[in-house]
Amino acid sequence: MQLVRQNEKSAVKWHRKGALVLAALLAAAVASGCAATPERGGGGGESAAGGGPVESATGRQGEAAPQAGPGRAPETYAQKVAKKQAVRALAAKRWGLAKTPLAAPEPPVVKPRVTTRQGFEVRDDAGLPPVFTTVPTKEKIVFLTMDDGAEKDPELLRMMTELDIPYSAFLSDYVTNDDYGYFKKMQRLGVTLNNHTLNHRYLPGLSAAEQEREICGQQEKILKHYGKRPTLFRPPYGNYNRDTLVVAKSCGITAVPLWASEAFPDRMEWREWDRDLHPGDIVLTHFRGKEDWKGSMPDMIRRVMKTITDKGYAVAKLEDYV
């Protein structure tokens, strides 16, 4: 019995020593591996010699730290478009569109050079902002723009966001000043807010000073409420003279987009003789509702998008091209 107890004591001592030695070896191996492995945000799991993963105390191989494999290829524009179109198709059904709106091509790296449309010129000796109805492009795209700001339909904001249809707003203060917040929401959704004068007056009938108040005064209103002066301006009714363009340029306007066609809930009206869309055409509509139209703003969107999509066009963002 004495011999057995002595043997048991010897075995216990041996196991204790063995455990201590093993622990020391493991600690040394881990420390050596950490010192020899380049930092990867938390240390590696290989030995100093790079000969394999370190054995853990349980006898299982420890997992090596995640290695920086080949970087994931960035998502292409086509892949992004495909994802957006799948979401857009569902939204089109929800909103009662006849077809899913087509996807616009990737915006140009360099914006096209826009010039004044022939027949729209005034005497220009000061590099006045160009006046145009179509943006020069070969792509089958058009640009949707909305004027004034009288109707503040929350359904429009939801609809355009869910359908991912870009548009530009040209605001007049006399109809927006009862709810600046509505257009602030619009701005947060990515819509650019542009200048359509303070009071929507017929500008050629005003003096240069009066025009300055209308145009530059609206620049300051938009700056105050939305944080940025516009660079695009649309004169009310599409009417202007040389004073209009001189004044507009003086307070930061660089371009004057008019329109090639106009959308209503029940019809389209056309400037051109062929009554058709053309690459780069600007489409006008208004912030109006059933009090003024035979339908709501969502009704108007359904109508104009049917025309645009049926003719094989997509809607692009005007400010990406001008």
Rank of each mutant, 00 (worst) to 15 (best):
P154G: 02
G127C: 03
L206M: 15
E162C: 01
V122T: 09
G119D: 08
A91E: 00
L90K: 15
V87P: 00
P130A: 01
A104Q: 03
N199L: 10
K99G: 01
P112L: 12
P154C: 06
S172N: 12
D164I: 05
F120W: 15
Y167W: 10
T115H: 06
V122M: 04
L189N: 13
A209W: 13
A91S: 09
I141C: 01
Y174I: 15
G190P: 01
D125H: 08
Y180C: 06
P154V: 07
T115Q: 11
L171W: 05
T100P: 11
V131A: 01
K184E: 09
T100W: 10
A78R: 10
F120N: 08
A92R: 05
Y202K: 14
K152V: 03
V110L: 11
G127K: 05
G96P: 11
D164A: 12
V122R: 06
P154K: 02
G119L: 05
T76I: 08
Y182S: 00
R88C: 03
T133Q: 13
T176M: 13
A86Y: 03
R158H: 06
A169Q: 06
V175S: 07
G149R: 02
D147E: 14
T137A: 01
P136F: 12
L203S: 02
T115A: 14
T116M: 08
K84M: 12
G205N: 15
V114F: 01
T116H: 03
M159I: 07
A89D: 11
T134F: 10
S172F: 04
A78P: 06
N195L: 11
M146V: 13
D148R: 03
P107E: 01
V109Q: 15
H200V: 14
L189P: 00
T197E: 08
D173F: 08
T176P: 00
R188E: 15
M146G: 04
D147A: 03
V142W: 01
T100Y: 10
L203Q: 06
G205I: 13
E106L: 13
A86F: 03
G149W: 00
A208Q: 15
A208I: 15
Y174L: 13
V142T: 06
D125K: 07
Q118I: 11
P129Q: 02
L128D: 09
F120I: 05
L163I: 13
T145P: 03
A126Q: 14
E106N: 08
V114C: 06
K84P: 00
T134I: 12
P107Y: 13
T134H: 14
Y180N: 10
P105V: 03
Y202N: 15
T145S: 09
A98Y: 08
P154M: 08
A82I: 08
P136R: 10
